[in-house]
């Protein structure tokens, strides 16, 4: 399941959705809104996405992961909109027969998501200023 949502992420339901008797390992990654970045204090983040392309890129990532690991089920949910400190911005759940496969597949999915899926975050600093986060990067590599 791949989903972009304005609502809070139900990571329990997401985790359950990838469990099955075929898999002995389930890995769940949660990205959450962190308070401190380089000595500056965040009070909230705003996430914006390009939904059609983000869906397409996430589907490509799932396909690429399935070519590399014996994945049973995958669930990826990214939240958009205004998130307060500690809230969950992204959840990746993956099930595989064995744990190493599940760990590796989960790491691949979140690492690649951060490089190639068109979603952006804007910092709301505690001094009242805001700032788009744009990592210095080149064209994302084809996966």
């Amino acid at each position: 399941m791949i989903l972009l949502t304005q609502d809070a992420i139900d990571y329990h339901a997401l985790t359950e959705s990838v469990r099955s008797p075929n898999s002995g390992a389930v890995v769940l990654f949660l990205g959450t809104v962190r308070e401190m970045t380089g000595g500056r204090r965040t009070v909230a983040l705003d996430y914006e996405g390009y939904p059609e392309m983000a869906q397409a890129k996430l589907a490509e990532l799932e396909t690429a992961a399935r070519e590399r690991w014996p994945i049973d089920r995958v669930g990826i949910v990214h939240r958009l909109g205004h998130l307060e400190l500690g809230e969950i911005s992204v959840a990746v759940a993956v099930s595989c027969p064995h744990r190493q496969q599940a760990f590796e597949a989960g790491k691949f999915l979140i690492d690649e998501l951060k490089v190639s899926v068109p979603i952006w975050k804007k910092e709301n600093w505690d001094d009242g200023s805001t700032e788009w986060v744009h990592p210095s990067g080149e064209l994302p590599p084809p996966v």
């Binding site: 059609e52 397409a56 951060k114 744009h134 064209l139």
Partner: peptide, 29 residues
């Protein structure tokens, strides 16, 4: 630059019927 929901190199030719978007490096997650 994205053309029809995929990243596009500078050499790619574009038609007015294509879906085109411009944006900075992504920062989701």
């Amino acid at each position: 630059v994205a053309v029809n929901n995929d990243y596009a190199p500078d050499s790619l030719k574009v038609r007015t019927s294509d879906e085109v978007a411009c944006f900075p490096p992504v920062s989701g997650g």
